[in-house]
Every structure is written in structure tokens, then in C-alpha cells.
């Protein structure tokens, strides 16, 4: 482990493999598996909480057609916020620890899920909604049987982009005390271990790809076939 300073790419790869091959890095609460699971856990938890908050809100606003301006405003404002600044501010107000950091991640994830859900509901063909009303569906039936299923492609798209942002930001949040792969990254930075940092960055990227793949699979599973066909049909047409 004498890897220090800048080196050529092949050497970096060799050193990364060496770092990974060291059994010491795979053991205990600071090891790769533990930190990876923790990272995964935080990401899924904060996106999960964001979904619980933003999906019902997005559905309500989309269904009633009231407050669309609010959705656009909120998501634009929050996209403009510097993520790390937000997390830091929360930590300053609430103190160092897991909860403020997670709250930051949730706040980060909400706009994408909210605007995805809202856009999903608004994308349902107005004739279909009109027909649903005209044939005697109650507002709840219309929401569950027509608006939600048709909103799913965009809704899940929103969750996917939220997840990508959160995976990346969670790494940086190690700097305010959150565990996860960010620990390994910052640990490497502190002692100038670039191999370790590179490994951590790679693992974060892999985790992001993995989670996105899981959500893509979920999307294929839950999105009704008729909508998939409709989308491919319009793409063929254009």
C-alpha cells in the first residue's frame, strides 16, 4: 500500500485491484460490504420517504388540476439549490448526524418525484379522463383505475432520476457524518490515498447503475403493456 501521488492509468487500475484484494478492506463495520449496504440503505430509505411524500401530493395536484404552478415552482427552486449547501445548512440547524443528512437527501429527492408524478397524471389523455367521469367513476376510482396506472411511466422516471441524484449526494454527505461509500472516499482523500478514492467512486457508480437497473426492471413489471405499446408506437411514428 505505497500508492501515493499521481500515476498512469494502468498502474492506477492495478493498484485499485490490489486495494480491493486486501481482505482487511472487506471486514468489519468500516469494510466495503458494510458501507455499501449502509449506502444502499440510506438511498433507498430517503427516496422511499420522498416517494411517500411526493407521490400522493403529485397525484392530488394532478387529479384536481389545482396547484400545478406550485409543483413547477417548487421543483425549479429546489433544483437550483446547491445540494451540499442544503445538507450542510440542515446539519447546522439540526446538529451533526444521520437524521439531518437524511432529511437533506429526502428534500433533494422530492422535486423529481413530485414533478414526475404530476407530469404523469397530466399526461393521461383528457378524453380518457372525461370518459372515466362520464361512465360514472367516482373521483377515487378515476384516480386508482385511470390516472395512476397511466401516470406510472413518468412517475417511475421521476423516481429513477431522484435515485441517481441521491446516490451521488449521499457520498458527499459523508462529510457531515453520514456513513456509506462516501466514508471510504473521504477517508482516501484525507490521507491522499487516490487508489482508495478511485475504488470508492467506482463502487458508487456501480451502485447507481444497479439501483437504476432495479427501478427499470420494476418499471417494466408495473407499467401496463398497453402504455409500453403506445410509447413504442409513437416513437415508430416519429
Amino acid at each position: 500500500m505505497d500508492a501515493r501521488g499521481r500515476k498512469g492509468a494502468p498502474e492506477l487500475i492495478v493498484n485499485m485491484i490490489a486495494w480491493l484484494a486486501d481482505p482487511a478492506h472487506w471486514r468489519g463495520p468500516e469494510g466495503v460490504p458494510a458501507q455499501m449496504l449502509l449506502h444502499l440503505y440510506y438511498c433507498v430509505l430517503s427516496v422511499g420517504v420522498a416517494v411517500v411524500i411526493a407521490v400522493p401530493l403529485g397525484l392530488y395536484i394532478g387529479h384536481t388540476g389545482r396547484g400545478g404552478v406550485f409543483v413547477v415552482g417548487v421543483s425549479n427552486a429546489m433544483r437550483a439549490l446547491p445540494t451540499l449547501g442544503l445538507v450542510t445548512a440542515l446539519v447546522m440547524f439540526l446538529g451533526l448526524g444521520v437524521v439531518p443528512a437524511l432529511a437533506g437527501l429526502v428534500i433533494l429527492a422530492v422535486p423529481a418525484v413530485l414533478s414526475g408524478t404530476h407530469a404523469g397524471v397530466r399526461s393521461v389523455p383528457t378524453e380518457a379522463v372525461d370518459a372515466a367521469r362520464g361512465m360514472g367513476m367516482t373521483p377515487w376510482q378515476r384516480l386508482w383505475q385511470v390516472e395512476l396506472p397511466n401516470a406510472l411511466p413518468l412517475l417511475i422516471g421521476g423516481v429513477r432520476s431522484a435515485m441517481l441524484q441521491v446516490v451521488a449526494t449521499a457520498a458527499v454527505a459523508a462529510y457531515v457524518g453520514l456513513g456509506g461509500l462516501g466514508r471510504i472516499l473521504l477517508g482516501g482523500l484525507a490521507v491522499g490515498e487516490y487508489d482508495q478514492m478511485a475504488v470508492a467512486a467506482l463502487l458508487i457508480a456501480l451502485l447507481a447503475v444497479f439501483l437504476d437497473g432495479v427501478l427499470a426492471a420494476l418499471s417494466r413489471w408495473v407499467v401496463p403493456r398497453g402504455l409500453v405499446l403506445a410509447n413504442t408506437a409513437t416513437h415508430d411514428g416519429s
Partner: peptide, 14 residues
């Protein structure tokens, strides 16, 4: 009351 509209308004997901 049966209700039929111009664009049919079928549910795309069903």
C-alpha cells in the same frame, strides 16, 4: 347512461 365521445376516450392501459 352510456357515454360515447369523439376520440373514443379508451383507456390506453387496458
Amino acid at each position: 347512461i352510456g357515454y360515447v365521445i369523439q376520440q373514443a376516450g379508451l383507456f390506453p392501459h387496458r
